[in-house]
Structure formats: structure tokens, C-alpha cells
């Protein structure tokens, strides 16, 4: 089921009416959901952006699905980065102290090493990921997209009920 959903997301995103930029932006935003621990306030903001901004929702779901395992794998690195920033960089201590004692900000759990480390990495990766995925979508659509669209697998996937749900949030031209 998970694989099917992933395939659906992949097909729908790549063959949607959205531009490569919309698809890449959605994927990059979705990667934040995947890379960082999900149940945090900043992810509510990211999710709201995915909904409100005219980016590919399918691309965001694809980015989320693709980057969840990456997030698990990179947790030790996130922990190290977060620990370095929070505890071992005295220059940043006033910033963290101010944020920790400011309203609402502590609710984001920014002071957790995994959250901060993963958020910093996700933010740093956002632009490269956006550019790379936009280039990839352009290349895909120019080369193999038509052949895939004619395949039986594609038709069976897009005919599923999930596709109808997707259509609600497809990017507007």
C-alpha cells in the first residue's frame, strides 16, 4: 500500500499540469516534513505553506515520503549538528537564550538537538533540492514522460480513488 501510494504520488506529480517549478517547490517543502520530526509546530507552518502556496501537493507528499527514511538515517548527524549549535557554539548562546525565553518559539522545540539539526539541514538543502528537482522534472518530461503516460501501470494508478483526492489540491495553472 505504501509503495502504491508512493507510485501514485510519483506519477501524479510528474505528470500533473503543474510547472516543474511548482513540482520542485512542493517536493522541497515536503522534504522538510520528512527530514524533521513530524509533530512539531514548524511543520504545521510548512504544511500550511504547502496548502496555501501554489505548489504541487503531490510533489510535497512525494518529498515527504522520500525524505522520511533519509531523516531517520541522518538522525545521528542531525543530533551532532544540533548539539554543536546549541551547546558548543558560545556565540549563538544569546540567540538561543532569547528564543527560549520568547513566547511561542519554545513550542517549536527548536532547543532539541534533532529538531534544530534536521531543520537547519532541511533549510540548507531547500534551494539545491528545488533546483535539482526542477531540472530533473524538465528532463523527465522531455524524454520519457510520454512513454510512461501510455503504459498500463500509469493508467491503473491514476484510475484509483486516491487520484480523485489528489485532484482537489492539484496545482493551478
Amino acid at each position: 500500500m505504501l509503495v502504491l501510494k508512493l507510485l501514485q504520488s510519483l506519477f501524479k506529480a510528474l505528470h500533473s499540469e503543474g510547472t516543474p517549478g511548482q513540482l520542485a517547490a512542493g517536493l522541497a517543502l515536503g522534504s522538510i516534513l520528512g527530514l524533521t520530526p513530524l509533530w512539531n509546530l514548524h511543520n504545521a507552518v510548512v504544511f500550511a505553506l504547502i496548502i496555501v502556496l501554489n505548489v504541487s501537493f503531490a510533489g510535497a507528499m512525494l518529498g515527504w515520503a522520500l525524505f522520511v527514511p533519509v531523516g531517520f538515517l541522518l538522525d545521528p548527524a542531525f543530533d551532532w549538528i544540533g548539539r554543536t549549535l546549541l551547546l558548543e557554539t558560545p556565540a549563538l548562546r544569546p540567540l538561543w537564550t532569547a528564543l527560549y525565553n520568547a513566547p511561542v518559539v519554545p513550542l517549536t522545540s527548536f532547543n532539541n538537538t534533532i529538531v534544530l539539526g534536521s531543520l537547519v539541514v532541511a533549510a540548507a538543502l531547500w534551494v539545491p533540492l528545488f533546483l535539482a528537482s526542477r531540472w530533473g522534472v524538465v528532463r523527465y518530461r522531455a524524454t520519457v514522460a510520454e512513454r510512461v503516460r501510455r503504459s498500463a501501470l500509469y493508467r491503473s494508478v491514476v484510475a484509483s480513488k486516491l487520484y480523485n483526492l489528489y485532484r482537489l489540491f492539484r496545482p493551478e495553472a
Partner: peptide
Amino acid sequence: PRATPGPTRARRAGATVRFPQANG
């Protein structure tokens, strides 16, 4: 600043650091 183990979750817990501020 004081680090304590982070919350239990599927992902790694990490450490949660508190930054007490004078007069806070």
C-alpha cells in the same frame, strides 16, 4: 544551559537544552 534527554518518539530523541535567562 542544561541538556536533558529529548522526548520519546519514533525518531531519535536527541537532547533538549534549556537556556535559563536571568530575571526570566
